[in-house]
Design a protein around this nucleic acid. Structure first.
Lengths: 140, 140
DNA sequence: CGGGATCCTTCTTGATACTG
DNA sequence: CAGTATCAAGAAGGATCCCG
């Protein structure tokens, strides 16, 4: 993250769009964002609930991810000044729309996961991705 | 990459899907995969063309990305045993379908980029994501 | 309970040099 | 041209300690 790359790429497939494509990709591409969003899809949850619902996450990463999401307006944070403290996180409409987009990706993944897995397995056998591959007939 | 996380998460929003969701996300979440795929959307290209079309990429990353994509069956690699050597890369149908999915994400990004940017800017001003946020009325 | 600040380890990436 | 191998820097992530 941090730098959404500053290359002034003059001739890519996407002329200028690539900038915020990468922003979004950097966000949902990290380990936890998608998990947090999907966990919040069922409704608002408090910090400890989130941590409990996402087995491998550390408080550092949970906090950071939540902050990023709040910063982008994808979730809301509500602190109740009680004792003991209680803080609830909830998806915004924008956040839900991202969830939809991610779900679309998930659908794609579900649809093609099998093929990818078998392709990968086949590559193990044939050595693709590690050595020589399909060698075409010589032209000269 | 390397480890697509082995946590056996028993109660996430997605029961079991999360595994290959993360696989796909890890792939397209990296800096270059999407750029490579989108660059190949116009047709087959050779190694050096790709490198020239993607300004910031190093040969290490280009090679690695191409191998991963080939391994997953998203692109094909064809080596022509000429001198000097020539190798062409091309999207498979599967690769093109991923391009579609990525394009969908891109559409989402394009549609909501402005709102996210303004949310982020607003957060700078209000201090959201760095300090105290909305404090609800106490319940006790 | 909900984090903030710090330290430390691991993974990712870019730069460089060499090969078929 | 099209890579491979190695090295070093930096970022991401986890563990820990501490505070309101």
């Amino acid at each position: 993250m941090a730098s959404a790359r500053q290359i002034s790429g003059p001739c890519q497939a996407w002329p200028d769009d690539s900038a915020f494509i990468r922003e979004v990709l950097d966000r949902i591409g990290d380990k936890w964002t998608v998990l947090v969003i999907s966990t919040l899809s069922t409704g608002s949850l408090r910090y400890s609930d989130l941590q409990a619902s996402i087995p491998g996450i550390s408080q550092r990463m949970l906090t950071q991810t939540l902050k990023h999401l709040e910063r982008d307006g994808l979730i809301t944070r509500t602190a109740y000044p009680e004792v003991p403290p209680r803080v609830e996180y909830e998806l915004t409409d924008l956040g839900r729309s991202l969830l939809d987009a991610v779900t679309a990706m998930a659908d794609w993944a579900a649809a093609h996961h099998g093929r990818i897995a078998s392709n990968r397995a086949a590559s193990e056998r044939t050595g693709v991705g590690r050595g020589k591959t399909s060698v075409s007939a010589s032209t000269g």
